[in-house]
Simulated assay, not measured.
Amino acid sequence: MKRNLLAASVAFSVITLVGCSEKEPELTTSIQQASYGIGLNMGQSLLQDGLENIDTQALALGMEDALAGTEARVSEKDLMAAFGELQAQAEERASAESTEQLETNTAFLAENAKREGVITTESGLQYEVIESGDAEGAQPKASDVVSVHYEGKLTDGTVFDSSISRGEPVDLPVSGVIPGWVEALQLMRIGDKWKVTIPSDLAYGPGSPSPVIPPNSILVFEMELLGIQQDDE
């Protein structure tokens, strides 16, 4: 792990210092709230980097020394070696978790494919029709912009995004979304409402656009194609 990444993450100790004090400070002033926010954001970043086993007391001590301008208690050489070991541990843990998640995904998709009404495409995308539009209705092309209502969930039912909850559909370019959506939209006709199960490799894969969506997540969308902008021109 690059040292500057960990150095930036040291701000997480703002929140750990609270736990080390005898009395929790109030979070009433703008400085207190901003400080808490910095600690919260950095803590979330550490978790995303797989560093949930950080020694928070040592972390707080490092920040105290930095702010006081005192000499570092650990040599540069030892720090670099420690960073390297921590990075290796994080990568090993992430690899194991990724393998386990992919195995879970395979089992989930295999079971889902057995359900009545589920259609699996050649790419592995799975969908089932909730409501059908006009059988002769228009189908989007990759170059089109479409209007869609949707709700996205993880396989455990956690909702991570929903135009339905916001009460307003979205307009988006067919070619500008995740591969699973690109494929599904071009199979749908105006008025179709489908439940679409998107394998992780057709979604965000090992990456993640949000802490709400873990790496290698299968995404489940209820989506309705409301219109194609070019049809209205």
Results as ranks from 00 to 15, higher is better:
L187E: 00
Y150I: 03
K193D: 06
V118C: 07
R166I: 04
I164P: 07
E76M: 10
V74F: 11
A88C: 01
D192M: 14
V118M: 14
L109F: 13
Y127N: 03
A113F: 10
D161G: 02
A82F: 12
I190V: 15
M188V: 07
T70S: 09
E103V: 11
I130E: 06
I198F: 12
S175F: 13
P209A: 03
T197R: 14
I164K: 15
K141P: 01
K193N: 14
G167N: 06
H149M: 13
A138V: 15
D78T: 01
K193M: 06
S132E: 11
Q89S: 10
A142W: 02
S132R: 14
A94I: 08
Y150P: 01
A68R: 14
Y127M: 02
Q87M: 03
P169R: 08
A82V: 08
A72C: 02
K141V: 07
P199V: 05
S208L: 07
G176W: 13
P199E: 03
G137C: 07
N105C: 05
S163E: 07
A138R: 15
K141S: 13
G137M: 06
I178M: 10
E116V: 12
L102E: 12
Y127L: 03
D156T: 03
R189K: 13
E71T: 14
V212P: 01
R189L: 01
V212H: 05
G191T: 13
A94H: 13
V129K: 05
Q89C: 02
T155Q: 08
D134E: 11
P169E: 06
Q87K: 11
P169D: 04
R93W: 05
E76C: 02
V74T: 14
T158H: 12
A88N: 04
E136F: 15
L202A: 07
E116G: 02
E91Y: 08
A135C: 02
Q139E: 10
G176Q: 10
I178T: 05
M188Y: 05
A203L: 06
E183A: 07
E71F: 09
M188I: 11
S95R: 15
L109Y: 11
D161Q: 07
D134V: 05
D171S: 12
G180V: 05
H149F: 14
L109A: 09
L125R: 03
G117N: 10
